[in-house]
Design a protein around this nucleic acid. Sequence first.
DNA 1: TCTCCCTATGCTCATACTGAGCATATTTAT
DNA 2: ATAAATATGCTCAGTATGAGCATAGGGAGA
Lengths: 307, 307
Amino acid sequence: MTVDLIAVLVAVQAGTPLVMTLDRERALPSGPFALGHRSLQSGLRAWVEQQTHHPLGYVEQLYTFADKDRAGEGGARTISISYLGLTRALSDAESGWCSWYAYFPWEDHRAGPPPLIAAQIAPALSGWAQSAPDPAEQAARRQRVAIAFGLDGQPWNEELALQRYELLYEAALVPERRHVDTAPAFAGLAGLADLADLGRPMIGDHRRILATAIARLRAKIKYRPVVFELLPPTFTLLQLQRCVEGLAGRTLHKQNFRRLMEQQELVEETGATTAEGIGRPAKLFRFRAAVLAERAVAGTKLPLARS
Amino acid sequence: MTVDLIAVLVAVQAGTPLVMTLDRERALPSGPFALGHRSLQSGLRAWVEQQTHHPLGYVEQLYTFADKDRAGEGGARTISISYLGLTRALSDAESGWCSWYAYFPWEDHRAGPPPLIAAQIAPALSGWAQSAPDPAEQAARRQRVAIAFGLDGQPWNEELALQRYELLYEAALVPERRHVDTAPAFAGLAGLADLADLGRPMIGDHRRILATAIARLRAKIKYRPVVFELLPPTFTLLQLQRCVEGLAGRTLHKQNFRRLMEQQELVEETGATTAEGIGRPAKLFRFRAAVLAERAVAGTKLPLARS
DNA sequence: TCTCCCTATGCTCATACTGAGCATATTTAT
DNA sequence: ATAAATATGCTCAGTATGAGCATAGGGAGA
């Protein structure tokens, strides 16, 4: 039994979320957990720093899985433990950084829903739904597709990045699946238009891990101040907004976003303003370290009694 | 390298959250992941059903860790993958079910803050904070304690169950830690009153895993309809409320809780009412399966633009 | 039988938060 | 000077939330 450690290392530059890749942008940094490693995290740090020469800051565990596809061969089995890492230091010399939307072009809704969805994904998944054995399963598939991709009047939900990838995988619309079983998943698939541009594939299930990381991060930015790990020490509110927008893949209402930042007291003015660029200079902010300690643990709400 | 699967199996009876235990209530169901297992989950199901004879319903992965303490001996190393399972079928004949508050008496705030906190935990942790090497670390420890246990005007946050256990572990106030290093963590500890009633200990880090499960479940009930896995097919709103209260360890405002249930449309009336018991008969409800499919994926909010 | 007690359920009201848009300020480019 | 671009402030209605009051419908015992 071998145990692999896999890292999704994320940074944001100019409002674009980037992920660190290896092997001509088709793999995530990874390596086996060895006896010399003090802990899972330190093993991960060692591998990432060795392979990418980039220091690892904030790290959280994502998910552990036993790779079905690689199993059974000679009895050996691999357990993969995946981690999400956030970083801000991003020197220009580094290579391997790649926009995560290169792998998931359907996830970027900042300029409206990508035409790719209506043009290719929706018809292909509709065909897959039709190909289900019985009407109940057909309806179930159709509902899953509609909810995941915001079709049939359903709202788009950016947090469903993993479900979307898994649907495409299940329908054999991504090449990762087609390496596993060569036959098309349903009869209509062969007749469909070229699906080559459904994002850049990765080795093994690295793209699934990346989808897991995106989903986790999109959920987390809403209740934990993790964006701060991705931004420089001081920043303007627009930079902060663009960072969140890049991660969420959606545009935000500017004034309401600012109001939210103010009333949550997560940031404070530095007194300085930006000099560069066109337009009125923006105030520079920094995160309030004191609040971070408390807010880092603020939970959600229930209708409590006699508080 | 061995891989262990560990399950926290939770049920609720009469408003009390129960956890399935083995070995005189000191261990969680667990077993090694073997080559014969199709997947991690199916391996877990096999172990739990073999050891407890209880079927496993809803399951989600909690966390994976490499047990530091057991490491290094002869070079062998153990990876533990923990899961949370929710179940409702709870026949009376079964044994091994145990209130989770037996392990974490400081977590039950339904009758107000447990006296245990003010009487024993707060002074002991205060001593631990004082024992820090420098003033900065002392202040940091004091703040961690205040936030975790709701002291010094901080509000109680039920989601911090894991942080609380880890603080007690760090301060060597739980016997699990004292098995590892025998010396008291700080000079004042020896002079403190008997701390024997800081909850029932468990083997290895099983109590830490249970704390992880509690924290996860308390966070999750607020945004995913998972309570439904724990209740019978029909129930009264008070039963539902008592179930949530038991999990959260806090009492809720009755009328507002009902309003919340109604406006979320998660439940619908069956038309029947309860016969038994004193007082006005309560309407029976069931969960709306249709809404489950949609709401199961409803995320939280950002200030979106032009939606 | 009647009253009290208990639980269930309905309603109100002030306050806070959210979505959406309008208005104003301070720059640079032409 | 004027336009364009960005930053920032303010309003307003709709909705959600916290808290409490009031009423309904049952059983138990005087």
